[in-house]
Design a protein around this nucleic acid. Sequence first.
DNA 1: ATGAAAGCGCTAACAG
DNA 2: CTGTTAGCGCTTTCAT
Lengths: 340, 340
Amino acid sequence: MGITIKDVAKAANVAPSTVSRVLSDNPRISMATKKRVRKAMKDLGYHPNINARSLANNSTQTLGIVMKSSADKALQNPFFPEVLRGVSSVAHKEQYSLNISTGETEDEVMESVRRMVEGHQVDGMMLLYSSKDDRVADYLLERGFPYVLIGKPTGNMNEVNHIDNDNIQAAIDITDVLIEKGHTRIAFVGGDPNLTVTEDRVAGYKLALQQAGIPIDNSYQVYTELLTSGGKEAVRELFQMDKPPTGLVVADDLMSVGMLTMLAEFGIRVPEDVSLVSFNNVYLSEIIRPALTTTDVQIFQLGNQAAKCLIENVKNKDEPIKRIIVPHNIVERDSVKQLE
Amino acid sequence: MGITIKDVAKAANVAPSTVSRVLSDNPRISMATKKRVRKAMKDLGYHPNINARSLANNSTQTLGIVMKSSADKALQNPFFPEVLRGVSSVAHKEQYSLNISTGETEDEVMESVRRMVEGHQVDGMMLLYSSKDDRVADYLLERGFPYVLIGKPTGNMNEVNHIDNDNIQAAIDITDVLIEKGHTRIAFVGGDPNLTVTEDRVAGYKLALQQAGIPIDNSYQVYTELLTSGGKEAVRELFQMDKPPTGLVVADDLMSVGMLTMLAEFGIRVPEDVSLVSFNNVYLSEIIRPALTTTDVQIFQLGNQAAKCLIENVKNKDEPIKRIIVPHNIVERDSVKQLE
DNA sequence: ATGAAAGCGCTAACAG
DNA sequence: CTGTTAGCGCTTTCAT
């Protein structure tokens, strides 16, 4: 097969173990032999067999990544590629590989996760979402396997590493821009209510209203997958109320795009007839018209920090559990109108 | 550490090799012992160590995936998640893992690819793009490492597995919808001209014009990254010509979204003032307004076929080189107007 | 500072 | 049909 450590050893006139030590830059090897061995490696075009190494020292230098089961359109949300970029960037610097879960259904994904961890394919896992009753998270926690969550865990807050925004505050802040512009009839449009991020964002939305002394009306909250016929109904009802909202807090930029379209169909213009704010600040939100006033949650940073945190945890098993909050900020664009 | 094959062997009163054979469902093991061994595995909660297995039989059951260097926004193109879904689906069924390239710059990606292949981490590689002078593709080809390309290779057409659409025909077809609606002043807006997909699509665009007897005007072709100030200039110039186009063939749905915005800024309406058609048919294209008339290239299928092809090639080294063309079809929506 | 040897968990001849 | 025995390529004591 390929060039092995033995070939290098022979070429450099040393023992295989010495080559191994050079590989890990062991300080107890003289500069002279290091030079010699390194030259031999170059000459022969040697590359260590990562599998063999993994087997020998029981560590794989690879991180597993779980996305939500790819069956739904959620994957087309630009959030994922962006967070992946953040992860990828630090993984590369730290010489870690990335192994992503396969499978379409929840069961398949779970199966692929088990394969990764029980098959000793990865040193740690990263979940790019957080939802209620998630089997993957439960499994990892129970097994005591190192992992990090992007989002907020459902319970066990102090036992699981997680990277999150302060989504409650973020929702307060973005709702406040509506309030400051004179809006009082403000509705919330969320996605999957099982996602903790949705929970937090409604919670913040409500708090903002409270603080402003605006009564909370439950018929002003709708949860919908985007663009399903059911979703369309929900939105229509919202605007057929006696007092339809003048402001919309939408849980996610991609959903906002969907909303924009539905509203257009109903002949409702943004921001003239209704103002809209949302979350994430993906690329799309700035190229769409109207450009969205949204919350920049620093997706890239989320991924970055998550990778760092996981790698630390993997390297040092009794690294304390961490909770890292990535700051957000409001970016105002053209989807909000000042009310008289 | 964990449960090993030896533990299972002991528990089932057989030799380790027997357990191994049960693992691979070797037909020369009696049903009785298979049952017994399998029970032992279940009881002990045994899972094979994939690394050890890889080392022993020199095959990793994992596929490497290369995306374009994630530095640019290209990654936010919903094309990638969708093709990944296709790949993931068959990878899972075939019990393959997916290892994605890390790094932000082209150099870093190249480095991570070398790590994968020379480090024996993957059995085959898949490139999710195809562009001129691509170091990764060159490297793989030269090394004779199994790989598959999504797109059309630049040269070596018969030496590299690839899955592609007939982009020339697709461009002809989509340009024809403009022509059939009476358009004659039709411009082409492409992205990175180094991508083979861009080449093919202009080529088809030109052929369509030719076949319709419409003269080809080079100032009607612009290549631009979306939304850069340079891009804006290019588009402005297009519409400041004596005879501005009445139809636009845009190389990609995401670019189309950017175009829509630029056009709006210039006060040009779609489809009233200019008609627009594009490629890919990502989710976005149906939820944006106007909904895009576009070419469905069956992204999921592209990924699916690519994975199948690669796995075949990996399993059987002298499987012939394949070229698979995934059919496209036109989906007409609301971005085109009939001209008088 | 370096070498010899055992072993990580599994597979694959080779026996029987 | 099943057991024995070598490795796969690397790391890591333990010597020297």
